[in-house]
């Protein structure tokens, strides 16, 4: 056992030592996602740093939602997702994110392809910089209220507050119903309310819960992310670019997707 452990340590150490400084999204999962039982206590009112949920953040198959309303059924009738119970052949997918590089939008960005993201805290905002799409969100912490009748935005309007020293809660409205909620084609309306709860468990681990409240689309609120663990990446972690480029998507469709149909 001791020998085996020693070998693993040597392998891990040499991999880390040999890892490049740039594009550290290629950092081995073992270096950032291994459970850390001896983590130091969390700092108060501080969630800054780069956080990674590993494979769980990607959620490729999509989420099992609360029951759809008739409005949602009608809205999503034309959606042809690549995953989930309604998955179609690759050539027939019409997901606006993967086929034409529309923005993932919010809350899809925290429900699908939740790759590493960096949290930056300023005196009146928390900024979240996402590796996926290389996008950012502004969460106002200056006490302002959410807008009453906002024009829809791809990433909505967000305000946040600390409910205790280790839990930061974000509320978002004013999203754009052109976006899907996930990879399985769950729809939403412009009346959507989203709550994100970032609970820092200790120095190295934070949990993310996301609740969807959209009475127009779902018969009840539901929680697609329930205490999803995120691990703090090393301070020198350098995020790769992960951008949907229409040029690249066209090339991929021409070579692969458009040739996979069954007709």
């Amino acid at each position: 056992m001791k020998t085996w452990c020693a070998c693993l340590l040597v392998m891990t150490a040499s991999a880390a030592a040999g890892a490049q400084e740039w594009n550290r999204a290629g950092l081995p999962d073992s270096a950032i996602n291994a459970p850390k039982s001896n983590a130091a206590p969390a700092p108060k009112r501080d969630i800054s740093g780069v956080w990674d949920a590993g494979g769980a953040g990607i959620a490729g198959p999509g989420h099992e939602s609360a029951p759809w309303t008739d409005w949602a059924k009608e809205k999503a009738a034309s959606y042809k997702p690549g995953n989930g119970p309604r998955a179609v052949y690759e050539a027939d997918i019409n997901d606006p994110l993967s086929t034409v590089c529309d923005p993932a939008g919010f809350p899809r960005l925290v429900m699908y392809e939740t790759r590493p993201f960096q949290v930056v805290q300023t005196p009146n905002q928390i900024l979240i910089l996402y590796m996926f799409e290389k996008r950012w969100r502004v969460i106002w912490t200056d006490g302002r209220a959410l807008p009453k009748d906002p024009d829809p935005r791809w990433y909505g309007y967000s305000v946040g507050r600390w409910i205790d020293d280790y839990t930061f809660v974000v509320n978002t409205v004013g999203t754009d119903d052109r976006t899907w909620l996930d990879n399985s084609g769950n729809p939403h309306s412009n009346d959507l309310n989203v709550e994100e709860r970032y609970h820092r468990v200790n120095h190295d681990v934070m949990e993310l819960s996301v609740t969807i409240d959209d009475p127009k689309a779902f018969t009840r609120p539901w929680t697609p992310r329930n205490k999803m663990p995120l691990t703090l990446a090393p301070a020198n972690f350098d995020m790769m670019e992960m951008i949907c480029s229409p040029t690249e998507v066209i090339e991929f469709r021409k070579n692969i997707s458009d040739r996979t149909n069954n007709r």
């Binding site: 056992m1 085996w4 999962d29 073992s30 996602n33 590993g54 494979g55 769980a56 990607i58 959620a59 490729g60 198959p61 690549g82 995953n83 989930g84 998955a87 179609v88 052949y89 690759e90 050539a91 997918i93 993967s98 392809e113 990879n183 996979t260 149909n261 069954n262």
Partner: peptide, 25 residues
């Protein structure tokens, strides 16, 4: 322990393969 580690690695890495689309085709 080795088995658990392997399972952990599999859990971490099985999702990305199906990230963009499923296997219907």
């Amino acid at each position: 322990s080795g088995g658990l580690l392997a399972l952990y690695a599999l859990l971490l890495l099985s999702a990305p393969a199906a990230a963009h689309h499923g296997t219907a085709s």
